[in-house]
């Protein structure tokens, strides 16, 4: 008898959820909101600023071609290689800038920590799929573009449960 009561109780607590909004995020239509503009580094405090660690963004006017990001990545994923850029960038005497292979990158963000000129940050863009491997290699020109994505859904919690918008 107690078994029957236990099973009914278990079923009952599951059935209650029929009336509650689903928790699921309908992904391609809805996108989760993240804090901030992506992972950045604060020069004053010497620590990072919280944000999603997605695709990188490279500020060409700050990058001096010092290669420290590439050195940092060497022991991690070897995703960064330095490539030649046009000689007209005066402040970048070596005329090289990082190029990132997202087939290898693990999004640890340690290259952002390593960049002494705050030229390399990360953005909220995480949708990097492509049909070919070579399309995953982002050149300095591609890395300079700020992604434009709508991410606005948040978890809502009320007395009846939690849901995504």
């Amino acid at each position: 008898m107690s078994n029957v009561i236990g099973i009914i109780r278990a079923l009952n607590s599951g059935v209650k959820h029929l009336a509650i909004k689903r928790f699921t995020l309908r992904y391609p239509e809805q996108k989760l909101k993240f804090v901030g503009d992506g992972f950045q580094f604060n020069p004053e405090t010497g620590v990072g600023i919280a944000g999603l660690r997605g695709r990188h963004i490279l500020f060409h006017e700050h990058c001096t071609g010092c290669q420290l990001c590439s050195v940092a990545c060497e022991g991690i994923a070897e995703a960064i290689s330095m490539v030649k850029i046009h000689e007209t960038w005066k402040h970048n005497k070596k005329a090289i800038m990082p190029q990132i292979d997202y087939g290898k990158c693990v999004f640890c963000g340690l290259c952002v920590d390593a960049c002494p000129f705050y030229a390399l940050y990360m953005t909220n863009d995480y949708e990097l799929s492509s049909f070919t491997k070579s399309a995953l290699i982002y050149t300095p020109a591609q890395l300079a573009i700020k992604p434009n994505i709508a991410q606005d859904v948040e978890i809502k919690i009320d007395d009846r449960g939690a849901s995504h918008g």
Binding site: F23, L25, L32, F34, V35, G38, F39, T45, V47, G48, I49, A50, G51, L52, R53, V106, F107, C108, G109, L110, D113, M122, I155, A162
Partner: peptide, 28 residues
Amino acid sequence: ELFIDLLEAMSGARVTHAYLVPGGVRND
């Protein structure tokens, strides 16, 4: 998902956070 979202807000990654480092944490 509730906790993954919290850690994502803290560290910026959903799994493999690389958040703790010798000397503290990566970001505030």
